Amino acid sequence: MGSGCVSDNAAIRSSQPGRYGVAGPVRVSLQPAATGTVWNLQGAADNSAFVVRATSLWGVETLPAPHRVVSSATHRLMWVGPRSWLVFSLSPHAPADPAMQPGFLDSRNQLNAAGGALFDVSASRVGWTLRGPRALDLLASGCPLDLHHSVFTPDSCAQSLFGHVAALYHRHADGDFTLYVARSFADDVWSALCASAAQYGYEVLPAAR
């Protein structure tokens, strides 16, 4: 459990579920995100054969426009560049080996034939979902973007920084945020999040499933 003491640096950097930081109401919740299988989809948005194949594979009506996210019952697609999207499986229990992931090889071959490409990037990022009345303040402590809901609307995404680390931000339809960073910087970003959250009183929740 959390110590409730801001000065206990070891405690406030703990990833164990519990209550941390100053005493009082919990104002921020941090939860490791379930990234599951993640693919990088690449192709031209004006290539109709590619778009038809990609949207049919993942059950969405259209590929996300710049800085937008679209979802189906099984996948979430996130724009990350003019010819690039991330495709998140909403099933967190997919095999780690791309060749063993249901549909990966067939999907890749179909997209290649339509002028696109598909790469497995499941191991490249980690993420945390933030919610609560001080979640926006916590992110603002390390991010130069304006994340206010009037600007960074639900189902928006953007690449920026958290501190000095490249980060990908997603605002969910319910107003929660998920922050993704390269796995190699996960410990540094987690420590920074916890140190900033301690002033508000925060909780670490079990990893999403």
Rank of each mutant, 00 (worst) to 15 (best):
D137L: 02
V165N: 11
P154H: 08
G127A: 09
P95H: 08
D106W: 04
H149R: 13
S141L: 04
S150Y: 08
L145K: 10
L130F: 00
G127I: 05
A99M: 09
A96G: 10
A96F: 03
S124F: 00
L105Y: 08
R125P: 08
G132L: 01
Q110N: 12
C143P: 11
L111Y: 04
G142P: 10
A117I: 04
S122W: 03
V126L: 09
A113K: 13
D155L: 14
G103Q: 13
F119N: 15
A166N: 14
D155I: 07
A96I: 13
G132K: 05
P144H: 04
V126I: 12
F152W: 03
S107C: 06
F152S: 06
P144W: 00
L130Q: 02
F104Y: 11
V165L: 07
Q101P: 09
T153Q: 07
A167F: 01
S160I: 04
R134F: 01
L118Q: 12
G127D: 07
P102G: 11
G115L: 02
G163D: 11
R108T: 02
A135M: 00
L136W: 02
L161N: 12
A99V: 12
A114I: 06
A113I: 04
P154S: 10
P95L: 03
L161P: 08
R131E: 14
P95Y: 02
G142F: 00
A113F: 01
G127L: 03
G127P: 12
L168G: 11
R108M: 01
G116F: 01
G142E: 04
A117D: 14
S156V: 01
S156I: 03
L161A: 09
V121D: 05
P133N: 13
A117S: 15
G115F: 02
C157W: 04
V126P: 05
M100Q: 15
A135F: 01
W128Y: 09
N109E: 15
R125L: 08
S122Q: 07
T129H: 02
L130Y: 00
A114F: 02
P154V: 10
G116W: 01
T153W: 00
L105T: 15
D120F: 02
D97Y: 03
F119P: 06
F162S: 11
L105M: 13
F119D: 14
P133R: 10
W128P: 10
L138E: 12
D146E: 03
D120H: 08
N109R: 15
Q101S: 07
L168R: 14
Q101R: 15
S124Y: 00
L105H: 07
L161S: 12
R134D: 13
V165K: 11
G103H: 13
A166V: 15
L111C: 07
S150V: 12
T129D: 09
G103P: 12
L138A: 07
R134E: 10
W128A: 04
S107T: 09
A117M: 05
